[in-house]
Structure formats: C-alpha cells, structure tokens
C-alpha cells in the first residue's frame, strides 16, 4: 500500500510524492500533504465555508491552481483551510468546498507551488506525482 503522501529529499525546497486511487484522491492527498507541512494552529471557534470551481488547460495546471487556492487566504486573510471536499471532474475541472478558520500560529511559509518536472502519471494503484514547493 502506497502512502497517501510522503516528503522526499530536495536540497533547498520541499518535495512531496503523492498517490491517489483516482484524480480526486490524488488532489485530496496533495492538499493534505501540503497543509500538514505548514504546521498551522487555528483559532478555535467560527468556521467560514466557501464553494468554488476551478478550470485549467490540463490536469497538472489544475493541481497547481488547486493548491495555490488553498494557500492564498493565509497571507491575505490570515485564515487557513481546516477542512475541505474536492471532486475532480473531466481532468481539467474541479469543484471544492473549503472551510477556513483564522490562524493562531503558523510555522512555515510556502512561497509557491512549482511546475518543476510536474507530471501526473498513471501507476498500477492509480495516480502518482511529485510536487516541489518553493519555500
């Protein structure tokens, strides 16, 4: 059984190897992996829910856009995604619901989700990819 996500060696930045039985699973695991690296402590209490759709030219670009969407509220709203549902449709379209809470503390900063050698491959167990984050 492949782990949903695992950090792999990278000299300067962060790299995650992510697996999923299907694309929705892959996108979910990529988000869980990325959010786990940020070491966020949310403020207890009120949660804000948002629903959105994302479309891209190809699945890799959709994956980058999805992860960027989860990072964006950190700086601008001082809010972090604490729960989410995502469904990938037609390989270039996704629907998501995210739940946000204000941040009490955050230990890590991700500057960007990169396209470095980004390639979503089909494997026996479903899908696999490596994502490099500039930190």
């Amino acid at each position: 059984m492949q782990p949903a996500f695992e950090e792999i060696e990278h000299t300067a930045d962060w790299a995650l190897r992510v697996h999923g039985q299907n694309l929705t699973d892959l996108f979910r695991n990529a988000a869980l992996g990325m959010l786990s690296m940020l070491d966020i402590e949310p403020v207890p209490g009120k949660t804000e829910k948002r629903v959105f759709e994302l479309k891209a030219e190809d699945t890799e670009t959709l994956l980058v856009s999805w992860l960027e969407e989860l990072l964006y509220p950190l700086e601008v709203e001082n809010a972090a995604v604490v729960d989410f549902q995502v469904e990938v449709l037609e390989k270039v379209l996704l629907k998501a619901t995210i739940e946000l809470k204000k941040i009490a503390s955050i230990k890590k900063e991700i500057k960007a989700v990169t396209f470095n050698e980004l390639d979503i491959r089909t494997v026996d167990s479903g899908y696999e990819t490596i994502i490099v984050f500039d930190v």
């Binding site: 990278h10 000299t11 300067a12 930045d13 990169t114 396209f115 470095n116 490099v132 500039d134």
Partner: peptide, 9 residues
Amino acid sequence: VHQGYGFPI
C-alpha cells in the same frame, strides 16, 4: 549552485 526548481539556484 544547488538544486532548485527549473533553473538551478
């Protein structure tokens, strides 16, 4: 130099 993303640092 070290590994970066795309172009090396």
